[in-house]
Protein backbone atom coordinates (compact mmCIF):
# COMPACT_ATOMS: atom_id res chain seq x y z
CA UNK A 1 0.00 0.00 0.00
CA UNK A 2 2.73 2.41 0.99
CA UNK A 3 4.81 1.60 -2.10
CA UNK A 4 1.86 2.40 -4.38
CA UNK A 5 1.22 5.67 -2.58
CA UNK A 6 4.85 6.77 -2.96
CA UNK A 7 5.00 5.57 -6.57
CA UNK A 8 1.92 7.53 -7.70
CA UNK A 9 2.97 10.72 -5.95
CA UNK A 10 6.46 10.30 -7.43
CA UNK A 11 4.92 10.06 -10.92
CA UNK A 12 2.78 13.16 -10.37
CA UNK A 13 5.70 15.27 -9.09
CA UNK A 14 7.98 13.97 -11.85
CA UNK A 15 5.50 14.83 -14.62
CA UNK A 16 5.14 18.31 -13.12
CA UNK A 17 8.94 18.69 -13.10
CA UNK A 18 9.27 17.53 -16.70
CA UNK A 19 6.55 19.92 -17.88
CA UNK A 20 8.09 22.87 -16.02
CA UNK A 21 11.69 22.35 -17.15
CA UNK A 22 10.96 20.81 -20.59
CA UNK A 23 14.46 19.49 -21.13
CA UNK A 24 15.86 15.98 -21.54
CA UNK A 25 19.34 16.84 -20.24
CA UNK A 26 20.76 14.03 -18.13
CA UNK A 27 21.54 16.35 -15.21
CA UNK A 28 18.09 17.93 -15.23
CA UNK A 29 16.25 14.59 -15.37
CA UNK A 30 18.43 13.06 -12.63
CA UNK A 31 17.91 16.09 -10.40
CA UNK A 32 14.16 15.81 -11.00
CA UNK A 33 14.14 12.11 -10.11
CA UNK A 34 16.09 12.82 -6.92
CA UNK A 35 13.84 15.68 -5.81
CA UNK A 36 10.62 13.82 -6.68
CA UNK A 37 11.73 10.70 -4.83
CA UNK A 38 12.74 12.67 -1.74
CA UNK A 39 9.52 14.70 -1.73
CA UNK A 40 7.24 11.70 -2.25
CA UNK A 41 8.96 9.68 0.49
CA UNK A 42 8.93 12.56 2.98
CA UNK A 43 5.42 13.86 2.22
CA UNK A 44 3.50 10.74 1.21
CA UNK A 45 4.83 8.23 3.71
CA UNK A 46 1.86 8.73 5.96
CA UNK A 47 -0.77 10.26 3.69
CA UNK A 48 -3.45 8.05 2.13
CA UNK A 49 -4.23 10.19 -0.89
CA UNK A 50 -3.48 7.67 -3.65
CA UNK A 51 -4.10 4.42 -1.77
CA UNK A 52 -7.39 3.61 -3.43
CA UNK A 53 -6.34 4.34 -7.01
CA UNK A 54 -6.35 1.39 -9.43
CA UNK A 55 -3.14 1.02 -11.42
CA UNK A 56 -4.53 -1.04 -14.31
CA UNK A 57 -4.48 -0.17 -18.04
CA UNK A 58 -8.28 0.00 -18.00
CA UNK A 59 -8.23 2.58 -15.21
CA UNK A 60 -5.64 4.55 -17.15
CA UNK A 61 -7.79 4.56 -20.29
CA UNK A 62 -10.80 5.63 -18.26
CA UNK A 63 -8.71 8.49 -16.84
CA UNK A 64 -8.28 9.97 -20.32
CA UNK A 65 -11.90 9.29 -21.20
CA UNK A 66 -12.85 11.09 -17.98
CA UNK A 67 -10.81 14.15 -18.97
CA UNK A 68 -12.58 14.29 -22.36
CA UNK A 69 -16.04 13.94 -20.77
CA UNK A 70 -15.11 16.58 -18.22
CA UNK A 71 -13.92 19.06 -20.86
CA UNK A 72 -17.12 18.61 -22.89
CA UNK A 73 -19.19 19.19 -19.75
CA UNK A 74 -17.15 22.29 -18.88
CA UNK A 75 -17.79 23.84 -22.31
CA UNK A 76 -21.49 22.91 -22.08
CA UNK A 77 -21.62 24.52 -18.62
CA UNK A 78 -20.26 27.75 -20.00
CA UNK A 79 -22.66 27.89 -22.94
CA UNK A 80 -25.46 27.26 -20.45
CA UNK A 81 -24.25 29.97 -18.06
CA UNK A 82 -23.75 32.47 -20.90
CA UNK A 83 -27.30 31.83 -22.14
CA UNK A 84 -28.76 32.37 -18.68
CA UNK A 85 -26.70 35.46 -17.90
CA UNK A 86 -27.22 37.27 -21.20
CA UNK A 87 -30.91 36.54 -21.88
CA UNK A 88 -33.03 39.50 -20.71
CA UNK A 89 -35.57 37.40 -18.76
CA UNK A 90 -32.84 35.45 -16.91
CA UNK A 91 -34.37 31.94 -16.90
CA UNK A 92 -33.23 30.59 -13.52
CA UNK A 93 -35.04 28.30 -11.12
CA UNK A 94 -32.54 27.71 -8.30
CA UNK A 95 -32.74 25.30 -5.39
CA UNK A 96 -30.67 23.00 -3.19
CA UNK A 97 -31.17 19.30 -3.90
CA UNK A 98 -29.78 16.16 -2.29
CA UNK A 99 -27.98 13.45 -4.27
CA UNK A 100 -26.40 10.19 -3.17
CA UNK A 101 -23.11 8.70 -4.29
CA UNK A 102 -21.91 5.10 -4.10
CA UNK A 103 -18.23 6.07 -4.17
CA UNK A 104 -16.31 5.20 -1.02
CA UNK A 105 -12.82 6.57 -1.67
CA UNK A 106 -12.07 10.08 -0.39
CA UNK A 107 -10.10 11.07 -3.48
CA UNK A 108 -12.89 9.91 -5.81
CA UNK A 109 -15.39 11.97 -3.82
CA UNK A 110 -13.15 15.02 -4.07
CA UNK A 111 -12.89 14.65 -7.84
CA UNK A 112 -16.64 14.04 -8.09
CA UNK A 113 -17.44 17.16 -6.05
CA UNK A 114 -15.03 19.26 -8.11
CA UNK A 115 -16.49 17.95 -11.36
CA UNK A 116 -20.04 18.65 -10.21
CA UNK A 117 -19.01 22.20 -9.36
CA UNK A 118 -17.63 22.78 -12.84
CA UNK A 119 -20.53 21.22 -14.79
CA UNK A 120 -23.75 22.84 -15.97
CA UNK A 121 -25.62 24.71 -13.27
CA UNK A 122 -24.62 22.57 -10.30
CA UNK A 123 -22.51 23.42 -7.25
CA UNK A 124 -21.60 21.24 -4.27
CA UNK A 125 -22.35 22.91 -0.93
CA UNK A 126 -22.03 20.16 1.66
CA UNK A 127 -21.06 16.50 1.91
CA UNK A 128 -22.40 14.28 4.67
CA UNK A 129 -21.66 10.53 4.48
CA UNK A 130 -23.11 9.40 1.14
CA UNK A 131 -25.27 12.47 0.66
CA UNK A 132 -24.16 15.54 -1.24
CA UNK A 133 -26.12 18.78 -1.14
CA UNK A 134 -26.04 20.58 -4.45
CA UNK A 135 -27.13 24.06 -5.41
CA UNK A 136 -28.80 23.68 -8.80
CA UNK A 137 -29.42 26.78 -10.88
CA UNK A 138 -32.31 25.16 -12.77
CA UNK A 139 -33.97 22.42 -10.69
CA UNK A 140 -35.31 19.66 -12.94
CA UNK A 141 -36.29 17.11 -10.31
CA UNK A 142 -36.53 17.63 -6.58
CA UNK A 143 -36.36 13.98 -5.41
CA UNK A 144 -33.11 12.22 -4.62
CA UNK A 145 -33.15 9.62 -7.45
CA UNK A 146 -33.96 12.06 -10.23
CA UNK A 147 -31.30 14.52 -9.15
CA UNK A 148 -28.72 11.73 -8.74
CA UNK A 149 -29.39 10.42 -12.23
CA UNK A 150 -29.17 13.88 -13.75
CA UNK A 151 -26.03 15.09 -11.96
CA UNK A 152 -23.87 12.31 -10.56
CA UNK A 153 -24.23 9.18 -12.74
CA UNK A 154 -22.17 10.20 -15.76
CA UNK A 155 -19.06 10.85 -13.64
CA UNK A 156 -19.66 8.12 -11.10
CA UNK A 157 -19.53 5.22 -13.53
CA UNK A 158 -16.10 6.37 -14.76
CA UNK A 159 -14.71 7.08 -11.29
CA UNK A 160 -15.83 3.64 -10.06
CA UNK A 161 -13.35 2.04 -12.45
CA UNK A 162 -10.51 4.37 -11.53
CA UNK A 163 -10.98 3.99 -7.77
CA UNK A 164 -12.01 0.53 -6.64
Amino acid sequence: MKIKNIFVSFLVIMIGWMLLTWSLDMSSVLLGIGISLALSIVLCNSCTLFNEINLTPKAFAYFFWYIIVFMIELVKANIDVTRRVLSPSMPINPGIVKVETTLKSKMARLILANSITLTPGTFTIEINDDAMYIHWIDVESEDVEGATNAIVRKFEKLLEVMYG
Partner: peptide
Protein backbone atom coordinates in the same frame (compact mmCIF):
# COMPACT_ATOMS: atom_id res chain seq x y z
CA UNK B 1 -36.89 32.41 -6.86
CA UNK B 2 -35.56 29.40 -4.94
CA UNK B 3 -37.88 26.41 -5.20
CA UNK B 4 -36.43 23.83 -2.82
CA UNK B 5 -33.84 23.68 -0.02
CA UNK B 6 -33.14 20.05 0.92
CA UNK B 7 -30.16 21.00 3.10
CA UNK B 8 -32.30 23.20 5.40
Amino acid sequence: LTTVDKLR
